[in-house]
Design a protein around this nucleic acid. Structure first.
Lengths: 144, 144
DNA sequence: CTATAATTGTTAGTGTCCTAACATTTAGGA
DNA sequence: TCCTAAATGTTAGGACACTAACAATTATAG
């Protein structure tokens, strides 16, 4: 971006790259399934939790607001990727369970995600990649 | 994110950081102005172009779709940050001009943006920062 | 010159993020 | 116990990204 001349903000570069990643991931997923990248990450998370999770876990893990989670999950429920039910032990909690459809989709989603990882890391050495990830983590912590 | 165990995708980490940046920038801008981070970047770009630009330039520079630009600019026009008029030389083009209000806001926006840049780079050496930016650029190119 | 293609912008509809305001349930303190 | 605070989720409304379909203007090829 030439707009900022020599002083392109780092935050802008990061935002830009994330934007490209999102677009690539979304367009690589089968349209007819109604599955999106964001939903793919949610499925990935719940899958690794053993197929079950509470909304509040998603909230913390993805660092997004409760209302956003509600919205996401309502859509995923509508599209048959999850089922939601109240927890018997605490009526405030809602337990999310993956459906078979989601479990079937999981492997394919992960393939797409790692494909993008490989693609963006093309021509970058393992050492560089490691340093890059370190800095990425530091930056994340710097924003709390 | 523990979800993917040891194999957290890089693309997920980038997406996450960008998300935090966006939230921080948006919440640091004065609410009453109606100004958002995205609009701030648009103002920054047009400002550096001398206060004028065409929609197609924004499209290329920010790598976002025409419909998105239309949507953004309609809002910015409504909020008094820009004025739009047809180009006399080519009636397909729409020329965007910053208003005084936007020019006044520009400096403050840039301060906020560079504040975030400083904040995310806290504890990271200049050399590291440089390498990080290099890799970021490579990754951007890898996604076309 | 005319027909077609390319360029530029809009509209409609959707997904994912936000804040603010609200409701419900559980936990804790007087 | 009872009242208040904390935790969890929803709704409403807005911002910014997308695709697909459309409209208008300009450029180009025959």
């Amino acid at each position: 971006m030439e707009a900022f001349e020599k002083n392109i903000p780092i935050c802008f570069k990061i935002k830009n790259l994330a934007h490209l990643i999102k677009r690539n991931l979304n367009s690589s997923l089968p349209e007819e399934s109604g599955l999106t990248g964001a939903q793919g990450f949610v499925i990935g998370y719940i899958y690794n939790q053993g197929g079950e999770a509470f909304q509040k876990d998603l909230e913390k893990n993805f660092n997004i607001r409760r209302s956003t989670i509600t919205c996401l999950l309502q859509l995923m429920e509508k599209n048959g990727f999850i089922v939601r039910e109240f927890s018997p032990s605490d009526a405030r909690l809602k337990k999310i369970r993956l459906t078979e459809k989601a479990e079937d989709a999981h492997k394919k989603i992960m393939e797409k995600i790692y494909e993008i990882d490989e693609r963006i890391a093309y021509g970058i050495s393992d050492k560089e990649k490691e340093m890059f990830l370190d800095i990425l983590c530091k930056m994340e912590q710097n924003l709390n």
